[in-house]
Amino acid sequence: MAERGESSEAVMLKKTEEEKLRKGKMIVGDESKAGYEEEGKKVKLVTSDGVTMEVEISIVKEMEIIQTFIGATDTDDSFIFPISNVSSHILNQIIELVKGEYDQELAKKLSHDELKEILVAANYLNMKTLFHFIATAIANVIQNKSVEFVRDFFGIVNDFTEEEEAELRKTNAWAFEGVDED
């Protein structure tokens, strides 16, 4: 897991170099300057497992929780933002999903735990597109599955009493009428 984080980081650092080169070439006129500076920028994120990852600004921009903060400060390269609820593994998954432009095929490769953790991370980081995307993916997995499957999927223990469950079934009886017995 840590290896993945590092390799991804390495790739990103390499890209930074490329972009710096590109930036150097491109900054000729004043008009385009701001745009290119923005593009090459990285933000350092410290994950819950203590890994510092440099993430492209384009991806960080989707993280509204961080974006708000960045917007309020004059950021420079030393900007570091701790994301204590997100592991480096999950952050890497998120980066891949964003770079892959939210391809459902990518979501299919994720484990149940990863799906859940990405959902929670997307909620925490306030990444709206990712949040919708991953919720859809989870909805697809649990579609037409039994209540037991869903509990298992989320690692949830049934916290209803028998009476409460019976009451709920009664209230929502119509939803269960059409289900075949077998």
């Binding site: 959902l119 909620n123 949040f131 919708h132 919720a135 859809t136 989870i138 909805a139 697809n140 649990i142 579609q143 037409n144 209540v147 869903v150 509990r151 989320f154 949830i156 223990v157 049934n158 916290d159 209803f160 469950e165 709920l168 079934r169 929502n172 119509w174 939803a175 269960f176 059409g178 289900v179």
Partner: peptide, 20 residues
Amino acid sequence: EILSYAATPADVLNLSLVSK
């Protein structure tokens, strides 16, 4: 958010049985 992608209201109500 997940529930809002359920295909039908019956699915939503079925999922409401998962937990409180």
